[in-house]
Design a binder for these strands. Structure first.
Length: 553
RNA sequence: GCGCCUGUAGCUCAGUUGGAUAGAGCAACGGACUUCUAAUCCGUAGGUCGGAGGUUCGAAUCCUCUCAGGCGUACCA
């Protein structure tokens, strides 16, 4: 709804500029907001104040000009007032609000979708955890945020691809293979010092047991590199399979799994290094190969190939991002843990060096998640294998609660995951609060159906809803499409979580003050449409977050 | 040292591109079920938006400085 008003206002202002009544201003700068105080109407705009100094007129005089022009659309507005220093406060004709219900009930699960993104290709890459161990709680936040953001962008009209980058090659993988091999040898009574950077979790022992079942003692006699290779391949495959299962259970969907090893296989790492050299963007010094990232705003140049001849992590990552650009994405969104923030400038530099605009690259940094149980923090450390897995969280509190909790904060704010609160089936738990609203509506609709009440939206007098709490509820519904657009534009998926809370609150308030099914048949019919629309929007927004909408609780 | 993030009610947090009297939830206190699910609602109370300057019609929001917490500053990944 806000979008519509904004468009109308821009057209009006453009018209006034053309007529010489207003100075030349950028129509994109014209915006409307929803006032905090309801007495100021449905929407407010500050055009008059923004243009006053350029127009060399008083804000209230400009506001008067705009107001008169808007008033030619007498069917749209109930009231237009100038207030304060020059705000133009606009109240819509309630009929417009009420008509929104027809859109909702007519479009069903498509309500809220828009063409804002104009079909532009966007890629969201997230989780991308090394297949060296199960996903932990930090990955869970990245998974929930990334998956929700991908769904939001799709709803906003972008062509979205969700991708998982698998680091299936390199030192970490060798460490994994070695860790398994050491545990395997222990099974045969050999005491081998555990590797310094080895993985200590119990899952490594489990895999070693399987290796014994498959190979017997054959790996004891094998050459070590070969034995490590065998352990590595099996462990990586098993762990990755576990990751896929956890993500599926978490209702997180990927369109594409991209293996780092394919970059080497397809000579893309080599090619991108050559490309940098050709452009004079790399140089040899002290036996290493350097990339001139400082030329693109990084604080220092970065090493691509180390003195020992092996490549840094950065080198294939450049090739990977070149591949993303080659696939034609207009927007590349990488979701990383905030501890990688130092990596952003060099990646941005790489994007620019590859000939793309650095603006097409967005690194979304997810701050730390800590866990609280029984009121005290749970200590976690990946290296020692003492961490709480995503799977454990899902098993303990359920997929829906976990997903919502991970979305309860802005990405750049640290998150405390309170297990006690997450398990509480009470009003303190926002997930149940929201789902309960949905279940209540389903119950009403079921009662109505049992009584043979089946409203035909387009034959019902919805104008009965054009006042009071009914109208308030409709207004909350109508901000849903705007919320999606703003969440997509600013890459802030948590706004959907907060919107859901707002809508559930508005519904519960309505429910406690009004009865839907009464003797008044026309009003009953209209309100059945209203609550059905609320149910639909709750359902749609929950779906964006990958959370279920139970029909009874 | 330098860089990034955070600092808003007792606690946990929202706050669209700078807008009008800064909002929720929890906790506290007082109310509401013969009525479609009380996992709900209503009311009361609670604030120097960490601090100090600046920018302008107007700042929680932008700039500078400063304090506190977290993270990062690899020829690790």
């Amino acid at each position: 709804m806000k979008e519509k008003i904004e468009t109308l206002l821009r057209d009006t202002v453009s018209g006034l500029v053309a007529d010489g009544l207003l100075p030349q201003i950028d129509p994109q700068g014209v915006s409307v907001s929803i006032p905090t105080n309801k007495e100021f109407g449905d929407f407010a705009t500050n055009v008059a104040m923004v243009t006053a100094s350029r127009a060399k007129k008083r804000p209230r005089d400009i506001a008067e000009i705009v107001k008169r022009s808007l008033e030619t659309h007498s069917d749209l507005f109930e009231r237009i007032e100038i207030a304060g220093p020059g705000f133009i406060n606009i109240s819509l004709n309630p009929a417009l609000w009420v008509n929104e219900l027809k859109d909702i009930v007519g479009q069903r699960e498509n309500y809220g979708r828009s063409t804002y993104g104009a079909g532009k290709k966007v890629q969201v890459e997230f989780v991308s955890a090394n297949p060296t161990g199960p996903l932990h709680i930090g990955h869970g936040r990245g998974a929930a945020v990334g998956d929700t953001l991908a769904r939001i962008l799709a709803a906003a009209g972008f062509a979205v691809e969700a991708e998982y980058y698998i680091n299936d090659i390199g030192n970490q993988m060798n460490n994994l293979g070695l860790s398994v091999l050491v545990r395997y040898r222990e099974l045969y009574g050999q005491t081998v010092p555990f590797p310094e950077n080895g993985y200590q979790g119990d899952y490594i022992r489990d895999i070693a047991l399987v290796m014994r079942e498959i190979h017997g003692d054959a790996l004891l006699a094998a050459e070590e590199p070969e034995a490590i290779g065998i352990c590595r391949e099996y462990a990586a495959e098993t762990i990755l399979q576990g990751i896929r299962e956890d993500l599926a259970l978490f209702n997180v969907h990927f369109d594409h799994w991209f293996g780092e090893s394919s970059l080497y296989r397809d000579k893309k790492v080599e090619a991108s290094l050559e490309a940098l050299a050709r452009e004079g963007l790399s140089y040899e010094e002290e036996g290493a190969l350097w990339f001139r990232t400082s030329r693109f705003g990084d604080e220092k140049d970065r090493v691509l190939r180390k003195k020992d001849g092996s490549l840094t992590y950065f080198a294939p990552d450049i090739a990977y991002h070149k591949d993303k650009l080659d696939r034609g994405f207009a927007k590349i969104i990488d979701i990383w843990g905030a501890d990688h923030h130092g990596y952003v400038p060099r990646m941005r530099a790489a994007i620019e060096a590859l000939g793309a605009s650095p603006d097409c690259f967005h690194a979304l940094l997810i701050q730390l998640v800590s866990l609280v149980r029984d009121g005290s923090p749970v200590s976690m450390s990946t290296r020692s294998g003492e961490f709480v897995t995503l799977r454990e969280i899902i098993d303990e509190v359920g997929k829906d609660v976990a997903r919502y909790f991970f979305m309860m904060r802005r990405c750049d704010s640290q998150l405390v995951f309170d297990l006690d609160l997450a398990k509480k089936k009470s009003d303190e738990n926002p997930v149940y609060y929201i789902q309960y609203a949905h279940a209540r509506i389903c119950s009403i609709l079921k009662n109505a159906a049992d009584q043979g009440l089946s409203p035909d939206t387009f034959a019902i007098d919805l104008s009965l809803l054009a006042a009071g709490e009914d109208l308030e509820l409709i207004k909350t519904l109508a901000t849903y499409p705007d919320t999606i657009v703003s969440a997509a534009a600013d890459l802030e998926p948590h706004r959907i979580a907060f919107y859901l809370l707002d809508l559930a609150t508005a519904f519960h308030r309505f429910y406690n003050r009004n009865r839907v099914i009464t003797e008044n048949v026309p009003l009953t019919m209209a309100r059945l449409v209203l609550v059905d629309a609320v149910r639909q929007v709750l359902c749609n927004a929950l779906a964006l977050m990958g959370i279920g909408a139970p029909e009874s609780m």
